[in-house]
Computed example of a mutant assay.
Amino acid sequence: MSDTATARAAEQPSLSIRNLSKAFGGVQAVNDVSFDLAKGELLALIGPNGAGKSTCFNMLNGQIRADSGSVRLAGEELIGRSPADIWRRGVGRTFQITATFPSMTVAENVAMVLMSQRRELFSLFRTAVHRHRDKALALLDLVGMAAQADRPCGVLSYGDLKRVELAVALGNEPRVLLMDEPTAGMAPRERIELMGLAARLVSDLGLSVLFTEHDMDIVFGHAGRIIVLSRGALIAEGTAQEIRSNPLVLKTYLGEGQIYGRAEG
């Protein structure tokens, strides 16, 4: 490969979204949205209620089929693929509400995703869990939960459950991680700690993370770049400082009194 081709390949975004659109009946939920998620970037997607954030998010991992547009993972088209197929190709995801198995241990919950990745039979569950324990512990160590590996998830605090969910999302060694309101329901200190952890994963693993979030302190304090949706359209993108001072964003979303505080949307 020539030096020019090598440089071009290095610059290829992890996730490339072009002209993404989705309508429900007569309502245009997402309208011609385009943006890139770079390798090793922590990118925030924000906007008021009804902006189209959830719809956009759900199209990226195949939960909702786009009407038009393209979503490419390192150049490979994802539109038309199932969520499971997209997951196996390297797009992980966390959700607003944690979805662990309360009666199973922390390590067993993480081992479940390792079994799924390898399409192993769940009838051999105990054998498979034992076989994947070292890998599960390594993932739990990444998120600071290895010491609680043998505790049932049902006795954990909400903040710790969020960490377990993050370990589960890392189980398929994703190139891209989608985090849907990762700090929802958490105490202020837990929010800061979780997003600090996400930022370290971006730095240490070269992971590309796209997240939605209502807490503007979290967004401005951790995102390397921010994109803003309003009524289904992308209205701004830039650094925290650029978004804070963008007149259109101030008018449609943040408001003069909400620039540094929690904005609902």
Rank of each mutant, 00 (worst) to 15 (best):
M1R: 07
T6R: 15
S14H: 07
V27L: 07
V30Y: 00
N31D: 13
N31V: 04
D36I: 00
A44T: 06
A51I: 05
G52C: 02
N61M: 11
A66T: 08
D67M: 08
S68R: 12
G80A: 08
R81S: 07
R81T: 09
A84V: 14
I86G: 06
W87A: 13
R88S: 09
R88N: 14
R93S: 08
T94A: 02
Q96C: 12
T100I: 13
E108A: 02
V110W: 06
A111H: 02
V113T: 14
S116K: 14
Q117A: 12
S123R: 06
R131F: 10
R133C: 10
D134E: 14
D134Y: 02
L139I: 00
V143Q: 05
A147D: 15
A149P: 06
A149L: 04
R151W: 10
G154C: 15
G154N: 11
L156I: 04
Y158P: 11
D160M: 12
L161A: 08
R163N: 05
V164D: 05
E165Y: 08
V168D: 08
A169I: 11
L170P: 02
N172F: 10
R175A: 00
E181T: 04
M186K: 02
A187P: 09
R191E: 15
I192P: 01
E193G: 05
L194I: 07
L194T: 08
G196H: 13
G196N: 13
L197A: 10
A198R: 06
A199T: 13
A199C: 08
A199W: 03
L201P: 13
D204L: 12
F211A: 13
H214L: 03
G221H: 06
G224R: 13
V228N: 06
L229M: 05
R231D: 15
R231G: 10
G232A: 00
A233M: 03
I235N: 09
T239Y: 00
A240C: 02
I243A: 02
R244F: 01
V249I: 07
T252W: 05
G255L: 11
G257E: 15
Q258K: 12
Q258N: 15
Y260W: 11
E264F: 11
G265Q: 06
G265Y: 04
